[in-house]
Amino acid sequence: MRVLLPVIIGLLYAAGIYLILRRNMVKVIFGLVILGHAANLMIFTVGRLTKGAPAFVPEGTTNIAEPFADPLPQALILTAIVIGFGIQAFTIALFKKTCQTLKTEDLDEMRNTDQLEKESL
């Protein structure tokens, strides 16, 4: 796991960055989702990867035996996943609506708000 997870995280980052650079809106969404997962997995590895050593204090003692997995990063990830889920749901709805309104899913065609003389009344 110690070797595998960093490789997976690296691949996820690479894939995510590749996808958000694409012109197609759907691919951009996938890119953002994957980047979020990569960040979550990274926090997960920070909490130390120990197998079968939950962070419980055994009965009768006051200290926990090393090594143990830090539970805090896992709590952080849970929060991040929930927030990410909500934001991603909104983003997908927004992208769908944009696609319907502008009749295109090519990001290169969405230049109107950047142009100098494109002023609405």
Binding site: G16, I20, M25, V28, L32, L35, G36, A38, A39, I87, T91, L94, F95, K97, T98, T101, L102, L107, M110, N112, T113
Partner: peptide, 17 residues
């Protein structure tokens, strides 16, 4: 919508970082 696409994408990227 067009402005929002740019705003949302870059801000989500910033959240991931």
């Amino acid at each position: 919508f067009e402005g929002a696409i740019k705003y949302v994408t870059l801000n989500l990227l910033s959240s991931a970082i």
